[in-house]
Design a protein around this nucleic acid. Structure first.
Lengths: 245, 245
DNA sequence: CGCGCGTTTGACATGACTCAAATGCTGTGG
DNA sequence: CCACAGCATTTGAGTCATGTCAAACGCGCG
């Protein structure tokens, strides 16, 4: 049994077969929210439910032509950007219902790399078609605007984390942010799987792998969490929360 | 003579009197770009050209109701977000033609504080009116989307800076980014005024004030820059550039 | 079953922060 | 217009959190 299947991907039921937006279990977190039935069907037609992506497989690469936005359908992804000398920063993790590629709109070029963290699938939204549709569906444009704004606000929070927080505060903030996102999707806020590696977490938080590893150990010793491999349980949310300020 | 007037604010000519979009010297960097003449006039009508803001004066405060987007007309602003225990992070500096408040759309609440860095003025765009207009002007929505995407891309770059760069690389990157933005606006890329304090720069880059001060001195010793007070001249762009990777 | 990589743990080095103090600039009030 | 008060900036010395290097471990995959 592969590592990938070992950890059941989120919303795995959506991975392999066609599901129209209106029947999709992600509907209430997703773009079409608030569209009328007729509009929904039009949107449905431009969505490409593409193949699945295996762990490590790129969804798109930096510096390639921007064609589509993607919404995670099942599994998870990470995005990274790189300096010219090869250092890179994990800019985000993406879970079902979340958009990937929003930062590519303005230059019509992807400026990040996006990779699957586990077996995953996406809904592909060809941007030109989406914009055509947007002309007749203001509500769709509003949704897009809102999504962009939400990611922007999240990134400002990350800037606070990266610029002002100590290592333990960073990790606590990260864990609670994941927890919150799983909770919103109807999963346990206290127990979940970390589909990304320690290296990815460390990179994302601006820390060394060793620091993250040591912190996981310390948090466990202090009774804040239980962690075995990729499975984590948050045991003392209040203390974690108090670490975040 | 006050400090504020000492340093001539950018686009000061726009500060005090009414200028229609089509006559505005910022037109080609601004929202209305690409709108038809008729649409431009409609947009013009919803814009509030509000009073000027003095140094330190808030444009809006975090946790207050979101009503408007703002475009800087003259001068400059900074935005900050805070942890619950009072630490705060400068999330951005804003110059003429740039949008402030885009991260507030999704929750209809400002989540940052915005403050003038010098005597400044803005165009206020009441969001509800803007959305009304957007329904009949897809081009306007596209512009908005593009602006949001651009800021998002910039923030990803800042995450790379905050997470992966050493102090001197951070400062070099910051200086060149300012240089680039001034250049785009038709100003000298090599010589400009730093309207923000050393403290603001340090905070924005995730450094201590002392570190920034020392780096300015070092850069000067090494012939990379000349700096006296708020006036800076970039003397060796290539070396600065090589520090950024 | 064995190789390889991700993870953990330990020892040490160091870049950047903190504390402290001198200096300079700015805005204010006389 | 000048003098003073207060804040911003610079510079120096010492500390510390986190990174780097190194090695052992163990899980997962072929």
């Amino acid at each position: 049994m592969s590592n990938v299947d070992n950890v059941a991907p989120l919303f795995k039921d959506l991975a392999d077969h066609y599901v129209a937006c209106q029947d999709c279990s992600l509907y209430r977190f997703c773009l079409p929210l608030g569209l009328h039935s007729r509009d929904l069907q039009l949107l449905d037609k431009i969505i490409k439910r593409s193949q699945t992506y295996k762990r490590g497989q790129p969804l798109f690469a930096a510096e390639t032509e921007f064609t589509s936005l993607y919404v995670v359908r099942s599994g998870s992804f990470k995005t990274t950007i790189s300096t010219s000398n090869g250092r890179d920063q994990v800019t985000g993790f993406y879970f079902p219902g979340e958009f990937i590629g929003l930062d590519a709109i303005h230059q019509q070029t992807y400026k990040s790399n996006a990779k699957a963290l586990e077996s995953s699938s996406v809904c592909e939204l060809p941007f030109d078609n989406l914009q055509e549709l947007g002309k007749e569906m203001p509500q769709l444009q509003v949704q897009l605007l809102t999504r962009l704004s939400k990611e922007l606000a999240g990134d400002k929070g990350l800037m606070l984390l990266l610029g002002k927080k100590a290592a333990d505060e960073k990790l606590a903030t990260f864990l609670l942010s994941l927890s919150q996102r799983f909770k919103e999707r109807g999963f346990s806020a206290a127990e979940f799987q970390l589909s990304m590696s320690r290296g990815d977490i460390a990179n994302h938080l601006g820390l060394a792998v060793e620091t993250v590893s040591r912190l996981f150990s310390r948090f466990q010793d202090e009774g804040l969490i239980t962690i075995t491999g990729k499975a984590i349980a948050l045991k003392d949310m209040e203390k974690l929360q108090s670490l975040c300020e």
